[in-house]
Simulated assay, not measured.
Amino acid sequence: MRAPLPPDEPARLAALHDAQVLDTPPEEDFDDIALLASQICGTPVGLVSLVDRDRQWLKAKVGTELDGFPRDLSFCAHTITSHDLLEVPDAEDDNRFADNPGVDALGIRFYAGAPVVLDGTYAVGTVCVLDREPRVLTSAQRRALRSLARHASVQLELRRYARHAGEIADRMRQVDRMKDSFLATVSHELRTPLSTIRGYLEMLLEDDFDAETSRRFLSVMSRNSDRLLRLIDELLMVAKMTDNRVQLDLAEVDLAELAHQAVAACRGLAEHRGVKLRDRTETPVPARGDAKRLAQVLNHLLVNAIKFTHADGEITVDSISEGEPELLITDTGVGIAADELPHVFDRFYRCAAAEVMATQGPGLGLAIVKSIVDAHHGSVHLESEPGTGTTVRLTLPR
């Protein structure tokens, strides 16, 4: 009779596979458990077994050369349906096992197994013993078998914790590298405009310039002051994102009208870089959102497109009002490599093109975009082809 599946079978298998012990070489700790089980219970066979989707695999064994067998033939598959020890005094007299091929082929008459439980929940295998003669364990032997199964559980948990600790250490090292990169980038982004402002101030203070030259100096200083304020605003926004404190002032909005305003605000930058900026949105595109935050999103997306589109390139903004309200921003820029696409919304991530083109910014724009859109329960997706361009699809609830 085939054992029923445990009620938590998918999660049980996930816990087993997460332990990453299947098909690993023998280990002394588990070999000792199998040997002790055999000696304490006075049986010729002692096993540490793990029950996979379709098989029972032996992590440790005493008294057999088998590495495993199909789950359909497994005594242990019955044991893992609960957290209790299973004892079969005589398999030939037990309806569950009387017609099991292992009873005839291997001469199995006696079985006792205690479940190996992970996370206090998932029975992933057993510590078990077999004999070719009918018999019954003593109370002390049952306690010992349960204790050995708990010991096997601890061994599996320790290995998993050690591996996870190694993964966490690797991630911490990556975080340290990201932190160093972030500090270097932010330091550069802060120092550059500050140095420019200071340099022009020193010239204004040291020399007498005509009114036109002074106005040009002040204009440069103003632009760099705006750059500093934008960076500070982005850093403050990231701090709010980290604390899940993005506040929205929700109301009925027209996405197309917001797009018109964003295009008008960015047209000067586009003309300065020789990029055509086309607004093909059709009013209205009704949605519910925070007009100020959505304007911030559209500004980030358009400025990003302009930065990465060469002179004589083109950026178009389209709208879709049927179904969920959508805006599409398509450029003919440098594009994004396939291996970089999964990371473009990560904080402080700068793609290779940003480094090659020496584009300003700490890599926060798209992270802020996604945070604002997520707060609206909307979505933002990028499709891109290197050398061809990028399309950003922004979707919001109606």
Score class of each variant (00 low, 15 high):
residue 219 S to C: 13
residue 195 S to R: 13
residue 130 L to I: 15
residue 167 E to N: 08
residue 186 V to M: 10
residue 188 H to N: 05
residue 242 T to F: 08
residue 227 R to T: 04
residue 159 R to A: 09
residue 127 V to Q: 04
residue 199 G to L: 07
residue 232 I to F: 15
residue 166 G to R: 11
residue 179 K to T: 07
residue 131 D to S: 07
residue 204 L to S: 05
residue 188 H to W: 03
residue 113 G to D: 00
residue 188 H to T: 10
residue 113 G to L: 06
residue 223 R to F: 03
residue 238 V to S: 09
residue 161 Y to F: 09
residue 191 R to I: 10
residue 118 L to R: 14
residue 232 I to K: 14
residue 116 V to S: 03
residue 189 E to T: 14
residue 219 S to W: 08
residue 192 T to N: 07
residue 168 I to Q: 14
residue 221 M to K: 02
residue 218 L to D: 01
residue 146 R to W: 03
residue 215 R to P: 00
residue 120 G to W: 03
residue 162 A to G: 07
residue 118 L to M: 11
residue 130 L to W: 12
residue 231 L to M: 04
residue 186 V to W: 10
residue 175 V to T: 10
residue 175 V to H: 10
residue 182 F to I: 14
residue 230 R to I: 04
residue 140 A to G: 11
residue 211 A to P: 01
residue 120 G to A: 01
residue 161 Y to T: 15
residue 237 M to Y: 05
residue 221 M to V: 12
residue 195 S to W: 00
residue 205 L to A: 12
residue 199 G to F: 13
residue 165 A to G: 02
residue 163 R to A: 04
residue 183 L to W: 09
residue 125 G to W: 02
residue 137 L to H: 14
residue 182 F to Y: 15
residue 122 Y to I: 12
residue 186 V to Y: 06
residue 134 P to Q: 01
residue 149 A to Q: 02
residue 148 L to M: 07
residue 193 P to D: 12
residue 212 E to D: 10
residue 177 R to C: 02
residue 129 V to W: 13
residue 236 L to G: 10
residue 124 V to F: 02
residue 183 L to Y: 12
residue 224 N to H: 15
residue 176 D to H: 10
residue 138 T to S: 07
residue 125 G to Y: 01
residue 237 M to H: 03
residue 236 L to F: 12
residue 138 T to R: 11
residue 248 L to W: 03
residue 210 D to R: 09
residue 193 P to T: 06
residue 230 R to D: 04
residue 140 A to I: 04
residue 165 A to H: 04
residue 228 L to E: 00
residue 139 S to V: 09
residue 192 T to V: 05
residue 136 V to E: 15
residue 157 E to H: 08
residue 134 P to E: 02
residue 127 V to E: 02
residue 195 S to H: 02
residue 225 S to T: 06
residue 144 A to Q: 07
residue 176 D to L: 08
residue 236 L to E: 03
residue 143 R to D: 08
residue 183 L to R: 09
residue 170 D to V: 15
residue 116 V to H: 00
residue 227 R to A: 12
residue 204 L to D: 05
residue 226 D to P: 02
residue 139 S to W: 05
residue 118 L to F: 11
residue 139 S to T: 11
residue 157 E to T: 07
residue 192 T to P: 00
residue 197 I to P: 00
residue 245 R to G: 06
residue 223 R to C: 02
residue 162 A to H: 09
residue 124 V to G: 06
residue 205 L to W: 02
residue 219 S to M: 11
residue 217 F to D: 01
residue 222 S to R: 15
residue 137 L to Q: 04
residue 192 T to G: 02
residue 220 V to K: 04
residue 118 L to S: 04
residue 171 R to T: 11
residue 186 V to A: 13
residue 154 V to F: 04
residue 155 Q to S: 12
residue 209 F to M: 03
residue 200 Y to N: 06
residue 243 D to K: 09
residue 185 T to K: 12
residue 113 G to A: 02
residue 228 L to Y: 00
residue 160 R to L: 14
residue 214 S to K: 13
residue 172 M to N: 12
residue 225 S to M: 11
residue 187 S to F: 10
